[in-house]
Write a protein that binds this DNA or RNA. Sequence first.
DNA 1: TATTATTGATTGACCAATCAATCAAGAAAA
DNA 2: TTTTCTTGATTGATTGGTCAATCAATAATA
Lengths: 197, 197
Amino acid sequence: MPKIGMEPLRRKALIDAAVLAIGERGSLDVTMSEIATRAGVSAALAHHYFGGKNDLLEATMRHILRELGRDSVAALAGVSDPLGRVSAVIAVNFAHSQFRRETIAAWLAFYVEAQRSAPMRRLLRVYTRRLHSNLMSGLRELLPEREAERTAEGIAALIDGLYIRRALVDGAADAASAVALVDDYLETRLTRETART
Amino acid sequence: MPKIGMEPLRRKALIDAAVLAIGERGSLDVTMSEIATRAGVSAALAHHYFGGKNDLLEATMRHILRELGRDSVAALAGVSDPLGRVSAVIAVNFAHSQFRRETIAAWLAFYVEAQRSAPMRRLLRVYTRRLHSNLMSGLRELLPEREAERTAEGIAALIDGLYIRRALVDGAADAASAVALVDDYLETRLTRETART
DNA sequence: TATTATTGATTGACCAATCAATCAAGAAAA
DNA sequence: TTTTCTTGATTGATTGGTCAATCAATAATA
């Protein structure tokens, strides 16, 4: 059976299985057996490739973040006008893929882990910085530095808050209205600034 | 040892102990023994009074929500001018008590549970509605209905988003700057509206 | 080519630890 | 005595992790 280079295949299968399991349980409270069985291998093999449960879960989180990163660069590619860039960033964070059960579960579990796990907190900071940077790439050309920073902070918070509310409280995730609200916020900040001159 | 009416005392002690344990673990992943020991009783007694682990945790969440409710009415009491009411609501949600380790842990665990537990989701909706209602109590007199609703939604999302960011990402929870940002949002919405007439 | 290491891949069986829940029985109060 | 209160002991189930052993393919050797 052992062909060549099983490792990358198995790692991917295990991470995919972990994402599925997390999405189903709604938290990181999943067993190695469940993940391994889902990936079609034994629990022992999961340990063999990842060392321990924590390492597997950490790799899984990293994988999810990487996906969001890919989506972000894709959304920004080719959009050169500043306002379009900001809108693109907002849209990506409310994209369909972000409202899958697994993604929501992973994000919430992510927050929980970040409280006590330094590596997870580092990962969370990566997301934060990237979002900020992406927003600033457009805002910098629309507002003075100080004002741009503040607007980026507001938009980022608005995104996080609306995401949780749409994902948990409101029924069907109404991404459109969320995007509209954030866009409205952006527009207001812009008009206020130009009116000030 | 058994005096009269031990039940309310034990319930309170157990809930308090649960809050502490949750705050320490950072999640609902706490054992009945740990909670019971902390409360100075046996694990069996915790089962006797609450039935099961789930019931105890649910009661604990309800208790935390009730605390925030009390703080809110206290903050609103006596404040009659509309703008002051809105500001008061904003301030309460960033009050010192909300940034205690236990409170943060409870809220995040709350979100996680709300994904799969209908009772928890109901509790979350209680919080949402109350916040909305409290905000509207001031906004209604400052803006036309539609605009007030929208502003309340924005403020609420901003509060939730900033709360998580201040609690998890940024270092020391900088409540002051968060309040300033939300207040700024409110002010902008108001001036925009009056300028429109 | 045939034979013999060598290595990566994989697993079943097992272990020690942990936990929620139950229960029978003891201690104290009414 | 009856009721309320309380616990220690126990159980049944689960879990993360370890380990020795197997299997398949490849490389080396004769």
